[in-house]
Design a protein around this nucleic acid. Sequence first.
DNA 1: AAAAAACGGACCGATCTTGTCCGCTTCCAC
DNA 2: GTGGAAGCGGACAAGATCGGTCCGTTTTTT
Lengths: 184, 184
Amino acid sequence: MPVRADAQRNAARVLAAARRAVASTGLDVSYHEIAREAGVGVGTVYRRYPERDHLMAAVLSDILTELIDTAHQALDCDDAWEGFSLLFTGLALRTAQNAGLSGSLDQHGGPTVAQQRHELLDLTRRVIERAQDQGRLRRDLAWQEVLRLTGAPAVQGCVLGLEPDPAQGHHLVLTVLLDGLQTG
Amino acid sequence: MPVRADAQRNAARVLAAARRAVASTGLDVSYHEIAREAGVGVGTVYRRYPERDHLMAAVLSDILTELIDTAHQALDCDDAWEGFSLLFTGLALRTAQNAGLSGSLDQHGGPTVAQQRHELLDLTRRVIERAQDQGRLRRDLAWQEVLRLTGAPAVQGCVLGLEPDPAQGHHLVLTVLLDGLQTG
DNA sequence: AAAAAACGGACCGATCTTGTCCGCTTCCAC
DNA sequence: GTGGAAGCGGACAAGATCGGTCCGTTTTTT
């Protein structure tokens, strides 16, 4: 007996809703809110993911899959700087969108997530080192340090009450960061 | 009849605790948590600040006072770039430390806070424009945009699980940002 | 030493979260 | 069609947390 059609549809809805909810609220978002966001009952969410960690692992895996794809595209660019910019932008935007995630990837998420993260990390290192080899990217920063900079645009707001324009804001930070990362 | 000694001591404790609590949790931190942090009973906190807005105004005013001081130091520097770097670093660090504040300065905080913010904003604009006049700071960014960039290092964590080294991390982001902001 | 001032935290009601349970609905096989 | 299994939804119980009060106790001052 195959999986019922409505079950499959709802499973997709729940995962998508969970991604949105985690992005806006953080990893500690409640099941009820995810259910509301998905337009299903809480029971459905609990039935699909009896363990909170499984849900979070699914969400994280979803995000990592997209990033890994971007990393492959970056490696396919002939121009190493172009590839680096592409991946750096992708990482920064994802980080910003999922600011609530913090560093808690370790706790939640099983071996799959760990493996995906390792894969992404390896791809990223290659993108960065390649750009450095071509002399386009500052060499005074280790690749881990460059990576850490992708978190910079994850700005929530500003003490000074300036409206954080999400569309232009990110673009602005990224421009200055990339200019700062380029070799003179 | 003068203010009792223990009352004075506790008032200071509460304000300091509130600053710490707001910095780590945000403006919506609970009175109970502030009391716990301060090592006093909740009653004491409520007695001192019956209105939540008054407490938050006190906290914000405390922070703004420090920043205004930094801004004056910046204007005192003969080298405009040096002054800009000083203020930019100060703003960025404070922003990072108080990431939870978001843009909600407007709601909370009375006229004093508003006035202080205005003063800080004005000083900052002068520091930035002076550096641009001396040809040391990129002119393709309006001063408001430069200011917005100070929020960039307010990184909570990284999707990739790299430990966000608070000491070195900030320094790193700031270095690259400042390099990106400098004129070629 | 006694009055005044301040303190602490138990306590109350309201709100929010986790997790369960069961009557109702939807789907699939025949 | 139709019957029964699989899935659904959301009311509900139990626990945590929050804002805010109140009063017996401690501390300070005179």
